[in-house]
Amino acid sequence: MTQSQHEAIAAPSMVVERQRRAKQRRTLFYLALIAVGLVAPFLAYPVFLMKILCFALFACAFNLLLGYAGLLSFGHAAFLASGGYVTGYLLASYPGLTPELGIIAGTLSATLLGVLFGVLSIRRQGIYFAMVTLALAQLMFFVYIQAPFTGGEDGLHGVPRGELLGFINLSNNMAMYYFVFAIFLFGFALIQRTVNSPFGQVLKAIRENEPRAVSLGYNVDAYKLLAFVLSAAIAGLAGSTKTVVFQLASLTDAHWHMSGEVILMTLLGGVGTLLGPVMGASLVVSLQHLLAQSPLGNWVSVILGIIFVVCVLSFRSGIVGELAKMYRKNFK
């Protein structure tokens, strides 16, 4: 509040200068992160990194909805899974199909599902919205168990990674990594662009005060639906990519636990921050990886539950949110 008042009083040139420098800092920061992403596969196991990237994209998609439109979806697993299943089925049944086409098809199917779910679930608000999305995702879970193309309880195995654009062999983990990294950057940039666009501003207005947004003449339902569909599409993109990386699609992705996990990732990293979901996904995936090898392997869901409770009780801004608060307090 006072910050903006100061800015209003300060000479315009100073404001412009400060904004320019902030923008410069942000650009440098993102470039540094991209550099880290480019070097990372030489320092860590690429498959592990790809898993992080896929879940980070998934969490970013979820955060677009919760963090910027204020809609808590408890059914995002459905989009992850449908992207995965469609991509997996197509790539496994049509050997000539290149992976990028498979991923596009998977993403489209998740988008379509997003339209259907969105139209139904935005008819209810708040807590009911969460319950409706959860129930719809559970419906899809049963559909995936019984549908002929999902492999039922076993899931789809041995999905070929194939050759990107017909000539880059993705069975090489390094090639696969950079492909996944490119997809992640695309998804992240799309979300970043959306959030900072006029559309994103209206979403935030709806999140803060829906009746006021209505009274200002915005078609709130259309905005919510578009945000929902966009979020579903990017979640589907994450699921499709994940299927190509791990060469399998299974019911784990469709289970409500998965919808809960993505909430946890976002909450832990910081709801409504761009980098929070990336941070949260990295932490949760790493934690699961570490625990799986330790004697505590069976306690993963209990530990996730404890983190959930701690986050809600005393760490609601998440890691990135808390860091941003500290930064604002000490450096401005």
Partner: peptide, 10 residues
């Protein structure tokens, strides 16, 4: 909702 979800997991 989130808190009780965490408790249910535990």
């Amino acid at each position: 909702l989130l808190l009780t979800f965490g408790l249910a997991l535990i």
